[in-house]
Design a protein around this nucleic acid. Structure first.
Lengths: 355, 355
DNA sequence: CTTTTCTCTGCAAACGTTTGCAAAACAAGG
DNA sequence: CCTTGTTTTGCAAACGTTTGCAGAGAAAAG
């Protein structure tokens, strides 16, 4: 009658105490099996479902976690939220999703608003300042994904080793000049990948030219493709698959052939084989990262913050159709071998950045 | 000290009543401005944030809505959840996200579990039986997107008119035989699009051949591309962009040129210009649909269910690079004009379906 | 038949808010 | 100075659970 039935109504109906009804659901082993059955039957019949808010208030456990991402429309995130949600669901947790729109202020506000209402927060690719992050992690239960600030709980998708493999592979194919096309400058992943390229290019005596697609969209990357093609590199490693894809789009339009004229390697494997040719990339286990993060939140429900930890999942190079041997003839750089110029050059596209 | 400060602690600290503190936040105009300021200052200092659960319990308003989608990894949904989340946030609502994994049972369970904890539910592309949906809509506050069952509150992205335009356009380009490549058989959108193709093809005396990619993935579509190419059609309308893209991938691999050999039109505009050539498609206002749905949930907070309504947003045809005039020479069908075969043939790919 | 030990159930307080009602403080009108 | 009216605040109950504690039986042990 009066909306949803409550535990008290059920109890009254059965002539027993509310606490008994409660226990029938939460600690059935304390009760006589017949009582449990009785209650369950009545609950079923009345369509009773427990009120999470009341429960949360009473137990202090919210039964929910929050998940904060910079841009849910970026293909990197949906698989992550999917994995997080599935795993949380297995643990009996619901998940609040919020999108910061890449805006640090919005992110900060969201964290403050959500944190007290949930058992923990997962913040992915945070754009906040390190100091602020440390401060937040100090008093809130939050796990970070792809943001590496010391003494916080963070799980990282590390692509350095895979990038090293990629560079080795390119080197073996005869490439000497490669480009790195970066993404969001504030992104930890971007910094990590860029320095991996820088570091490991040295061991193969590769010359690297830097570009940056900002924002990291298909269009921005496509707009950048001419500069990249003109720069004389024979291979490019992109921050992620969508940038790689944008470059390929630009190359195709300009008549430069991938992989004959130019090899390209993406990252994150968000596009799988949907490009043509199929994109060589670095696959990364977002699902594992997401699950690790929600597991961390569900452990130690008592403490007011998570103990520092640095969990790493390594990506792996997967070669498909966009990598090939360097073109044997007339590559512009062979005329002018400048292998001894170590400091990378930076070329910027799009609006300002503070990388 | 003791975790987060509460309203009672604040009150004690200030030597005033908890109710006054409460009112300072919820109905400040009832209080003397100085009191409000006093409370706010203290709250700020103590880092007080209201407990949503307690509030929800007291007011009966949850401050949250639920959003249920079949597969968040499908590019159709992220923009939708983004729009929903943004708008909900403006209204002071949080959003629970859940993924049914295309499983009706899971969907049903999720709806039952979430509905009582939120102010309303948005269910997108429901795979539930109509009877069950009506039953749910009867006692719960739920708005459906892209599922059309009478007497429920539903907002629909209608592509019929745009499909008519597409067919007209193809006809003007000289096409006489077109294929429709369907997606998830249980999907309302799929049925709607298929019958739109069937209906409007008649007015232009087009012959249509039916295919179905199940599941509606890039790979399934790609696997289907040979049959489609071999069927003698000169144009194909796909259920959505990812299927269109998969077909294009298959065509490219098989050496059939788009749009010279075959025109293709997608739907939903999820890929924008990221295909090569850029995909002609039907753009659809998911954002508006999402916002309408959350608005519906936020209105009439009292009632136990939403009054039936049928809100329609129409898609529009956007022509890019995958549509062109029918190839003048040697198209297999000109040898054998069978314009008078009206009943569409069905070709099935992937595992079983119940369309 | 007592005493002890379990098993099962009930009582009542607590969780942190909101809100109807009433009391107190103050201002204005007479 | 006493009414009357208005503004501001406090009291206490309610929202639907959970849970420590204690009581009531029942079973086991003596």
């Amino acid at each position: 009658m009066t909306g949803r039935p409550t535990i008290t109504q059920l109890a009254a109906e059965l002539g027993i105490a509310p606490s008994t009804v409660s226990r029938a659901f939460t600690r059935p082993n304390l009760l006589k099996p017949e009582t449990v059955a009785l209650v369950q039957k009545a609950a079923e019949a009345a369509g009773y479902v427990p009120n999470h808010h009341a429960r949360a208030l009473s137990t202090g456990r919210a039964g929910a976690i929050g998940l904060i991402v910079p841009d849910i429309a970026n293909p990197f995130f949906p698989p992550l939220v999917r994995a997080a949600q599935n795993y949380a669901s297995d643990l009996g947790l619901s998940v609040f999703l919020a999108d910061t729109d890449e805006d640090p202020l919005r992110e900060d506000r969201l964290i403050s608003r959500m944190a007290p209402q949930v058992e923990g927060l997962i913040v992915v690719s945070s754009r906040l300042a390190s100091a602020r992050i440390r401060q937040i992690a100090d008093s809130q239960r939050v796990a970070f994904i792809n943001r590496d600030v010391p003494e916080t709980y963070r799980v990282l998708l590390d692509t350095a080793a895979a990038i090293r493999s990629a560079l080795t592979h390119l080197s073996e194919l005869g490439h000497r000049r490669v480009a790195y096309v970066g993404g969001p400058p504030q992104s930890w992943a971007n910094k990590q990948r860029r320095s991996a390229v820088d570091n490991f290019s040295k061991v193969h005596a590769l010359e690297v030219t830097h570009f940056s697609a900002d924002p990291g969209t298909y269009e921005a990357a496509k707009a950048l493709s001419d500069s990249v093609a003109a720069s004389g590199v024979t291979a490019v490693i992109a921050f992620d698959d969508v940038i790689a894809h944008g470059l390929m789009g630009g190359f195709a339009a300009a008549g430069v052939d991938v992989p004959k004229d130019l090899s390209v390697i993406g990252c994150d494997d968000t596009l799988a084989t949907t490009t043509f040719p199929a994109l060589s990339t670095i696959a990364v286990n977002v699902g594992a990262a997401a699950r690790r993060a929600v597991a961390a939140l569900s452990e130690n429900p008592g403490s007011t913050s998570l103990t520092g930890a640095r969990i790493i999942f390594e990506g792996t190079l997967v070669l498909r159709g966009t990598t090939g041997a360097v073109r044997p003839t007339s590559s512009p750089l062979t005329l002018e071998p400048e292998l001894d110029r170590p400091s990378p050059r930076i070329v910027q596209a799009g609006h300002g950045s503070d990388s």
